[in-house]
Design a protein around this nucleic acid. Structure first.
Lengths: 241, 241
DNA sequence: TCACATTTGTCCGTATGTATC
DNA sequence: AGATACATACGGACAAATGTG
């Protein structure tokens, strides 16, 4: 069989720019676990000496790594580039851009979330273990404690869904849900904080869902989740631009 | 109700760096549709004059925009920064990083793909229209034509799934499937091109699925898709590192 | 084909802002 | 408060790439 020219892996015509090679080198060290989160990279000056390139080149490489979520940069004395894993933030930012530029409506977002999260819930029910249940219960307890003090629990409520995804024991679901929840959070925060009563209702829904999961009422848990997401979706619709 | 300090939107303590403000300004112009794909941005020198900042600052801002998928940069005379929408590439790259760094196995990827794509197929069946069917048929026809000439049809086969997602009429599904297919494509290409016969079998499966959709055999289409994705998943498993 | 103009890519020197000790 | 060390930002210079006449 001949090779489809569209599928062959040609070497890039355009020779890589220096700063790309530098950032790639560092990225490889991170993937190989030679550089770990918390490790401090040398200063720009020193990196320039080691890679034998100018400071500007190093800076542009650091910009790439920074935006990709591999490092953060601390200014001031004893500062410098530090290895950190904030890739999920980068992914979420990118998803946010993609959603914004494609003019995705709140309705679409709601519906997709409903579909994907009920799917993930099914998986979570299959694979959930005691540790997951414990952290979910802790999430609910925290939320209720905050609520009783009169605080909002925006973050806890979002985290409930992330914890459920983790219970599915599938990294892909974790990644997808986490990115999607960031979009949801962004959507809410751009339209002002949700009204006070909502937080409380959401937490109650979560508690009911968790109860059903723990008690093995799987189908009930799923239909509760669907109802729950529909309600949240309706709220979104009222907030839509 | 008091405000949860975790949810308040404080102004950032750390003043934004200059290049961040510059890239944000340009990004806004793109979101507002004032700058459209194909538009040419002024040269770095000229941008520096207009924003009243140095060239280095402009360059770092351009690095951000480039990596985020808002512009590409053409070197040489008459070149310069050009507005382009390659956000899906950026999103896919980010997802690739996230999957790589979380050590997601081929098995997980396969399973998540199976679940999400069957879900999307259900949606596609609900909302598919003549234009979708036409482009799907064209995809199959192209693939078969290439196959008969002895070419591989890696790209066509991937595109079939993207076209199906488009038929769901939900941007979120389109985005998710497209990003996921990039991961699949990357997975395959890193382990050598799939063997010659596989391409042909995959195209046949696609054709059968499309036939069932067109003829209204929805359940059959879905189970065919599931079988199809299991088979592809098994192939992945044999390729796993 | 060849020179030319334009623009990005890269380097250097210097000055300023900022955080730590 | 002062010294130190680092990122941030500026301006100038030259090399490399690329389209144009």
């Amino acid at each position: 069989m001949k090779s489809d020219i569209a599928t062959i892996q040609f070497a890039p015509i355009q020779s890589k720019r220096l700063f790309e090679e530098v950032s790639l080198k560092i990225k490889e060290l991170i993937f190989k676990d030679i550089l770990k989160p918390g490790d401090k990279l040398p200063s720009e000056m020193e990196l320039g000496r080691q890679f034998q390139v100018g400071r500007q080149t190093i800076r542009e490489a650091l910009r790439y790594l920074e935006l990709s979520g591999f490092i953060t940069i601390q200014r001031g004395g004893q500062g410098g580039p530090i290895i950190r894993n904030t890739i999920m933030n980068s992914l979420s930012d990118s998803l946010l851009d993609a959603i914004e530029i494609s003019n995705t409506s709140a309705k679409e977002l709601t519906y997709a979330r409903l579909q994907i999260e009920t799917l993930v819930l099914r998986e979570a029910i299959k694979h959930i273990d005691d540790a997951d249940i414990a952290s979910l219960k802790e999430n609910i307890a925290n939320a209720k404690a905050q609520l009783s003090k009169g605080f909002q629990v925006f973050r806890e409520n979002i985290n409930f869904h992330k914890l459920l995804a983790k219970a599915s024991k599938n990294h892909v679901f974790v990644i997808v849900v986490e990115a999607m929840m960031t979009v949801v959070a962004n959507f809410l925060s751009r339209r002002g904080q949700s009204n006070p009563e909502v937080s409380s209702k959401v937490t109650s829904s979560h508690e009911a869902i968790l109860d059903d999961i723990v008690n093995g009422n799987d189908k009930n848990a799923i239909s509760l989740m669907e109802e729950h997401l529909w309600r949240v979706g309706d709220l979104f619709a009222t907030l839509e631009r």
